Simulated scan of single mutants.
Amino acid sequence: MPADEAVDLSRATLSRIASAADVSISTVSKVLNGRTGVSEATRAKVEAQLHQHGYQRRGLRDSAPLIELVFVRFTTVWALEILRGVQAAARSRGVGVVVTESGDYSGPGPEWIDAVMQRNPIGVVLVMSGVSQSQLRQLRARGIPVVVVDPAGDPAPGVASVGSANWNGGLIATRHLLGLGHRKIAVIGGPEQMMCSRARLAGYRSALDEAGVPVRSDYILAGDFERDSGLELGKKLLSLPERPTAIFSCNDLMALGVYEAARQAGLSIPDDLSVVGYDDLSVAEWAGPPLTTVRQPLLEMGRQASTMLLDLDLDAQAPRVDLATDLVVRASADRPPRS
């Protein structure tokens, strides 16, 4: 199929847009498909004409009523909570949801953009990821808006996002352990390139600093948000000559790995080791003992992202929302053991 027939604009419309922008039809086609070989000035002229001819609005009206929800990994209860929120808001508006697993924390894989163009959803929600400028140009040319949930880095200019107060979450988790009397507090963070990981770690450091407790480099380790890394890094921390009396794990799954590390080391939680997690997944309440954790409003983050996407004005400034986090105190943290 020729490139200029791969889009849902008639050749007559393409011709009018090309004439108005003083470019060729093939140049209009390149802009529609986000291809290279077009100067930024020319691209801007063509996109303005596309918008003037109602192409972006048409994409929202005529596409199949589906939101595309994209995860790096769709393997955890964490992901299911986001999905539940997105579905709840979409269902209330008569819109379906299709789930895709693609790419890494930097963005969906290169194969994804062609597939999403074929599916032509009314919008895309990216989770713990980002979007390249090339992908963004292609989506915008097709009138497909994007919202990022818990963005991996600073969202690109013009990209809407929904996150949570990660710095505050790290702060209140560490303050809680300090308030119980702990001074040997370790942290298992998430991937170092993730914005949420850096923010939670910054909150941890701030709490120690305000309490006058030195930050120890051997007490700071980076995991991958999976249980196995919590187990591996928990064992490493608990084998230190001066082991910590408390571990703040930057998600609940890694905290459950720390539980297993403590069990293997013959330590009791919270008598010998206090543990605080992050997310407040359903498994946190079921753990033995029930896990003290920072509640991240995952369902509401998904709901807000879906609502924001469906109401997004592509001509207005992209909204960015951070929802509040709070501490859920259960039974996994207590005063440190006596020396």
Rank of each mutant, 00 (worst) to 15 (best):
Y278H: 08
R43H: 13
I185Q: 04
L312F: 08
L201K: 05
I144T: 11
R338K: 14
L180W: 03
G54Y: 10
P65D: 06
A265C: 10
C250V: 09
E300P: 03
A6C: 10
R58I: 06
S164N: 03
L60M: 12
T245S: 15
S102N: 03
D271Y: 08
N166G: 06
L139P: 03
V159D: 12
S129V: 09
N33V: 07
A152V: 02
N166W: 01
A331L: 08
Q49W: 12
A156P: 05
I82P: 03
L50P: 00
G170R: 07
I188H: 07
S15E: 09
D62F: 13
G94I: 06
A90Q: 03
P108T: 09
A6R: 15
T245Y: 11
G277I: 04
P157Y: 09
S249Q: 04
E242Q: 13
I113V: 11
S102H: 03
A165E: 11
G212I: 05
A262L: 05
R43N: 12
V86P: 00
T13N: 09
T13Y: 07
G59S: 15
Q133I: 09
G54L: 12
V86A: 02
A90Y: 01
D62L: 15
N166K: 04
D154A: 14
G277M: 06
G130I: 03
E192F: 10
G103K: 03
A331T: 01
V97L: 11
I185W: 05
Y219R: 02
V328G: 02
K236W: 01
T293C: 07
R243E: 00
V329P: 00
G266V: 07
L83P: 01
Q193F: 12
R35V: 08
E81S: 11
L273W: 09
K184I: 10
Q118R: 15
L233E: 00
D311C: 11
V98I: 14
S63D: 11
R243S: 01
A222G: 10
L233G: 04
V31T: 05
G230F: 01
R330S: 11
V28M: 05
I172N: 07
L178W: 02
Q118Y: 12
A173R: 04
G169A: 15
D272H: 07
E285Y: 02
D271R: 15
A152T: 07
V46E: 02
A152P: 01
I172V: 13
S229C: 00
P336W: 10
I113A: 10
A44V: 10
L253F: 08
G302A: 00
A207H: 12
I144V: 14
I113C: 06
E232V: 14
G85V: 00
P155L: 05
V275M: 07
G170N: 07
G230Q: 03
S134F: 05
D279F: 04
Q135W: 13
I188A: 08
L237N: 05
D272M: 08
K184P: 08
P337F: 10
L310F: 11
M117N: 11
E192M: 11
G302P: 01
S282Q: 12
S24Y: 04
S268M: 11
G257R: 07
E210A: 06
R175Q: 15
A199N: 09
M194H: 14
N120E: 15
S206L: 13
D4Q: 12
